[in-house]
Design a protein around this nucleic acid. Structure first.
Length: 208
DNA sequence: GTACAGATTGAG
DNA sequence: TCAATCTGTACT
């Protein structure tokens, strides 16, 4: 039933994969337990021509070099000093393309974090509505407990994080595309590209 | 060495 | 509406 996504899935056209990632599952092993969420929102970044991409104009730095890896590797970085952003490299080695995972639908019915969990994740006290657990790129990284230590991780080989196809099919007409979030600096042409994708009417997307 | 802004978030 | 918070990057 559940099939782990293999290299071939990621080594394809980035805009296509960004849409096909909707309905796929991220599985994260923490200790002996699995934490799973269905991807409901993504954004595509297609360097080097994309002004919104960290790899615009072919720029390579120690921060963004994971973007150039062959599809299926994690490109993760910190924004605003606090929030990690989980990206997956796409395409062939040397192609600076990636997909940002913006929101997950957590695969749990209810969740009241333990004191220990709150400490480790800097989570607020009390019950956290499922809806607000992973409905944003920074929040889902906190929930999955991923950070710089996952930089360059191979999703097809890792024992602590990978992606699965569980047979959920998202139809074309269920996919909404819109401009990407927070990239006005890229100028009107690139900021307007409808490269943000999310599942229509899904309550777990970061915003409408 | 220093300055500056950001693929966000949560509080007010 | 705005501050938090820190790293990468550019420039002196």
């Amino acid at each position: 039933m559940a099939r782990k996504l293999i290299r071939g899935f990621y080594v394809r056209d980035t805009l296509t994969v960004a849409q096909e990632l909707l309905g796929k599952f991220i599985v994260r092993r923490i200790g002996g337990k699995l934490r799973t969420g269905m991807i409901v929102e993504t954004e595509a970044y297609v360097g080097p021509q994309d002004r919104a991409s960290h790899a615009y104009n072919g720029k390579i730095t120690s921060r963004n070099k994971a973007e150039y890896m062959i599809g299926g590797h994690i490109y993760i970085y910190l924004v605003y000093g606090i929030n990690w952003q989980l990206n997956i490299s796409m395409g062939l080695a040397g192609a600076p393309e990636c997909v940002l995972i913006r929101a997950l639908q957590p695969m749990i019915n209810n969740w009241r974090p333990s004191f220990r969990a709150r400490q480790k994740n800097s989570l607020p006290k009390g019950r956290i509505p499922l809806k607000n657990l992973a409905n944003g790129p920074g929040k889902l990284c906190r929930w999955l407990r991923v950070n710089k230590s996952f930089y360059g991780e191979d999703l097809t080989k890792s024992k602590r994080i990978w992606l699965e196809d569980r047979g959920v099919k998202i139809k074309k007409r269920e996919i909404v595309s819109s401009p990407r979030i927070g990239i006005d600096y890229a100028g009107p042409v690139w900021a307007k590209k409808p490269w943000r994708f999310y599942i229509k009417n899904n309550p777990f997307v970061s915003r409408i």
